[in-house]
């Protein structure tokens, strides 16, 4: 008899997905285009929160957040706090959200990233001027494009063995 999939089954894939997300955010993109890139680790965290219902993923949110703090040079705990708050909202909605179309999910995550920016304005204190502010404000919109790619890629990698 087949057992239902558990988080531990995909442990290495989860770890690898966070590593790839960090690498994407560490890519040396030319200034100011790097400002358009959302925290990909947060979107990956959302994916696993929707996919793996047996965990809350708060430990992952804090750890990934701390790594983003080190990567971006912000106060330790800033990203961790924001990631945890946003994850909490996703956890409240996840049973309904996981049935939604990826584009509908994209819209919600864009809204959440605007919340990330609004809270981050006070907590992370981004250093922006008139020229770069527009890139920073456009960042959640790029999540509209990135989320379907992340969602489709991780769906493909975690498809049941019978579908291969």
């Amino acid at each position: 008899m087949k057992t239902p999939p558990r988080t531990t089954d995909a442990f290495w894939l989860i770890l690898l997905s966070y590593l790839v997300a960090l690498v994407i955010n560490a890519l040396p993109l030319p200034h100011p285009w790097g400002l358009l890139l959302p925290p990909v680790g947060l979107l990956v965290l959302f994916y696993w929160a929707l996919r793996q219902l047996d965990r809350t993923h708060f430990v992952a949110a804090v750890l990934i957040g701390l790594l983003y703090d080190a990567l971006e040079g912000t106060l330790l705990g800033g990203h961790a706090l924001l990631f945890s708050v946003l994850l909490f909202i996703v956890l409240r909605l996840r049973l309904r959200l996981r049935l939604a179309h990826p584009l509908q999910q994209s819209l919600l995550f864009t809204g959440l990233l605007y919340l990330f920016e609004a809270l981050g304005w006070f907590i992370l204190r981004p250093n922006l001027d008139e020229a770069t502010r527009i890139y920073w404000l456009a960042m959640p919109l790029t999540a509209l494009l990135i989320w379907p790619v992340i969602s489709a890629t991780l769906h493909f990698l975690t498809r049941p063995a019978g579908a291969r």
Partner: peptide, 12 residues
């Protein structure tokens, strides 16, 4: 120089 920080938080 391996890379520059491309985010809005710290110039490094």
């Amino acid at each position: 120089v391996l890379r520059y920080g491309s985010g809005p938080f710290e110039n490094y």
